[in-house]
Design a protein around this nucleic acid. Sequence first.
DNA 1: CGCATATTCAACCGACTGGTTGACGATTGC
DNA 2: GCAATCGTCAACCAGTCGGTTGAATATGCG
Lengths: 115, 115
Amino acid sequence: MPTAFTPTLDTVFSALADPTRRAILSMLLEDDMAVTDVAEPFDISLAAISKHLVILTRAGLITQEKRGRVKWCKLEPDALRAASVWMQGFGQFEAVNLDAFERFLAVELDPPKAE
Amino acid sequence: MPTAFTPTLDTVFSALADPTRRAILSMLLEDDMAVTDVAEPFDISLAAISKHLVILTRAGLITQEKRGRVKWCKLEPDALRAASVWMQGFGQFEAVNLDAFERFLAVELDPPKAE
DNA sequence: CGCATATTCAACCGACTGGTTGACGATTGC
DNA sequence: GCAATCGTCAACCAGTCGGTTGAATATGCG
């Protein structure tokens, strides 16, 4: 049974490290999809896709809901927040010599625009 | 020899997927460090740390410069930009909140500091 | 009911990972 | 010169990863 997974930076970053999984996430940005439809554009087996979806689920990046015999995959972008925050701790790295907390405040007051 | 590494999302995310490597990056936020000093707080061999530093270098997250017999490690936070932008595509996470920052502190700045 | 569809399970495979140890080249300092 | 220090290299190991195939489990449909 799906015990309550507690996504960590480890699981999130390693889930994101695979290009197939990132592509799946991008697809789910458009809309929820069934497992078979997720698999369709890829050249690998359905079982392999199923495993990727398990990994994304354990990372909290998607949820899956079974309706009838179809399992729908839904993006959960909130799971990226902790990782994003972690990275932003490094992002504002100007010449100023800020410690981690000051840097965080700077990010919070003036969030970087993803250009 | 400055082999032109072309850091990809793959290399960056998989570099970030390891807690030891994230801890190293956090340590380098404070200041540049020699390899031996990077290794000091960890319970693993110097050779293992050296391998981690190679992975961080190939991801573009740090650079290393040898002065005398000491090799200095320097954080290169710009390498996070592409990954950060990619993640921003999924969530309009507005300004980060304090909960998220506390998780950042608890999880990532917890590991032992090198003095 | 019986068959097709949707998805996972189980076993297996080769490649990669993170770790070890010991030897090694380079540099420093007595 | 010689010994200690800094860091990497090479070989090895156990475990994980991404993939396969084939069987199994649900569910829907005619």
